[in-house]
Amino acid sequence: MIHIITGSTLGGAEYVGDHISELLIEKGHQTEIHNQPDLSNINADGTWIIVTSTHGAGEYPDNIKPFIQALQDTPPKMSDVKYAVVAIGDSSYDTFCAAGKHAHDLLEDIGGTALTECFTIDILAHPVPEDAAEEWLEQHIERF
Rank of each mutant, 00 (worst) to 15 (best):
G7L: 10
G7Y: 02
S8N: 07
A13P: 09
E14Q: 12
Y15D: 09
Y15I: 09
V16N: 07
G17W: 01
S21A: 14
E22H: 10
E22F: 10
L23N: 08
L24C: 12
L24N: 06
K27G: 04
K27S: 15
K27F: 09
Q30N: 13
T31C: 05
T31M: 07
E32V: 11
N35D: 14
Q36K: 06
P37N: 02
S40L: 13
I42W: 03
I42V: 11
I42D: 07
A44K: 10
D45K: 12
D45C: 08
G46A: 11
T47Y: 00
T47S: 09
W48C: 12
I49G: 05
S53N: 05
S53V: 07
H55K: 06
G56C: 08
E59A: 12
Y60L: 14
Y60P: 03
D62Q: 07
D62S: 12
I64F: 11
K65N: 04
Q69N: 15
Q69C: 02
A70P: 05
L71G: 04
L71Q: 12
Q72R: 15
D73I: 09
P76M: 01
P76D: 04
P76W: 00
K77C: 06
K77A: 12
M78D: 09
S79G: 10
S79M: 08
K82W: 00
Y83M: 07
V86N: 03
V86G: 05
V86E: 05
I88S: 10
D90H: 12
D90S: 08
S91H: 10
S91M: 03
S92A: 08
Y93I: 08
C97W: 04
A98V: 07
A98N: 13
A99K: 01
A103W: 00
H104P: 06
L107R: 09
L107E: 06
L107I: 07
E108V: 14
I110Y: 04
G112I: 01
G112Y: 01
A114S: 15
T116N: 06
T116C: 05
F119N: 11
T120A: 05
I121N: 11
D122P: 09
D122L: 03
D122V: 08
D122G: 11
